[in-house]
Design a protein around this nucleic acid. Structure first.
Lengths: 238, 238
DNA sequence: CCCCGGATGTGTACGTCGTATTGATCGAGA
DNA sequence: TCTCGATCAATACGACGTACACATCCGGGG
């Protein structure tokens, strides 16, 4: 713990800052870490590099964080502090909107999908607010609590899985300095040619030959999402 | 590269082993690494620890691997070498079966969801075989190649997202030595109580009070999956 | 039978990581 | 003005991935 005072990270943060004079603060730390992760990837976010970015000694942030885990929680909460659902949408439009906003957020901060499991489960206030809005919009349609949660989680799972793949592709593309999907495919070509040469993947080979939307990630995202929402509506009788 | 010979990792592996007598081999390395990751988590899989497990010097595996990335690819391929789809299933049963098998595989090897993005995209032969089977079973229903891939990817994304959450929960539970969902909730209780005390999450609070299947991960998995499959059937006219 | 050349594993070393510990500094209340 | 607690700095430790040079051991040609 950063202090001996009890309470969770979030509880400590809502207490008035214990001293008015300080060059460091949880907000400054969080935004520096987020900026660093956005610019150079999550693996560039080391405690030492972060301290350097803040113009401070490597151990200084430990006054505010109990360790790197706390830093990641703080980063997650920081980027979730944005407007989410507009009011007055039906459950289906609301979930769709939420999914697309989460997609935008993940495209802006691709490291969100690569967090260790501890940070994935972090109960941060702003993240909780998203779940709250989703549950609220699902209420009043005759579902029990478990079904509502399952629906929310299903959409969230789809979004996270889809974005995991999408961000992995774009990360690989610009880690390697490639030029879009074609660059990636020509990078992967030797392996792919060899794999196809085994003759074990005829259906995949046909896909490679005939597909025309290989790089249309947004279309794929929307298509899968709409299937899921359609199925939710059908199975739950709206 | 492990050798100066050209070709991808997979290409090199299918060449006859260059020397008949050796204590190390890609298979031995892969299965030792998988056993280690299964037993102690992906973070226990370090090149040094792996070498120790194999009774060998830290640098020895580098004869067979160009680096840790190769090791992860090898591990992925190793666990995907299992029987997958039985023949004769319709597309819907087949995709459902595939999803449940992937769930089992992920529960057996939770580290599969925490791989770095490089390994997530790895074109390993056994992983490709899964995509091949899914595409094959979707063929002949009047979908174009892009739609078939989108359907497969949607199911895959759902499974991956759902399992990311499920494995994060179980990892947290036994990292912390807790006893099931109740243990986790009592661990999280202080933070949760504080969050609920803010009054900002009434819908979530209602869920906490009234839900009865909070720990039924399999039900939630099946429910979301069935929604997705239903929607796919509906949108594509079966 | 020997021996030699390449394949195989070893030893050592470097720079970086997270973070424990301890010491210096500085601002506000007495 | 002095002092004491809150801030931040300095140093250090063990573990990480892996580059590099060296030892060892095998099978095949004399």
């Amino acid at each position: 713990m950063a202090t001996e005072k009890p309470g969770s990270l979030w509880e400590r943060l809502e207490r008035p800052a214990p001293a008015p004079r300080q060059t460091l603060s949880p907000e400054r730390i969080a935004s520096a870490a987020v900026a660093l992760a956005d610019a150079e990837g999550l693996e560039a976010v080391t405690m030492r590099r972060l301290a350097a970015e803040l113009g401070v000694a490597p151990m200084a942030p430990y006054r505010y964080l109990s360790g790197k885990d706390d830093l990641l929680d703080l980063m997650v909460d920081h980027v979730y502090a944005e407007p989410w659902l507009p009011d007055g949408l039906g459950w289906r439009e609301a979930l769709r909107d939420l999914a697309f906003r989460t997609r935008e957020l993940t495209l802006a901060h691709p490291w969100l999908g690569r967090l260790p499991s501890r940070a994935k489960l972090a109960l941060t206030p702003n993240r909780m607010a998203v779940a709250e809005q989703a549950l609220a919009v699902l209420d009043g349609h005759g579902m029990d609590a478990d079904t509502m949660m399952s629906v929310f989680r299903a959409v969230d799972a789809y979004v996270e899985g889809a974005m995991g793949y999408e961000t992995a592709v774009t990360a690989l593309i610009d880690d390697e300095g490639l030029s879009g999907g074609d660059g990636l495919r020509s990078e992967l070509a030797p392996t792919m040619v060899w794999l196809m040469g085994t003759g074990r993947y005829p259906a995949f080979e046909k896909y490679l030959r005939t597909a025309t939307r290989k790089d249309d990630a947004e279309w794929r995202f929307a298509h899968g999402l709409d299937c899921l929402l359609e199925g939710i509506a059908a199975r739950l009788g709206i």
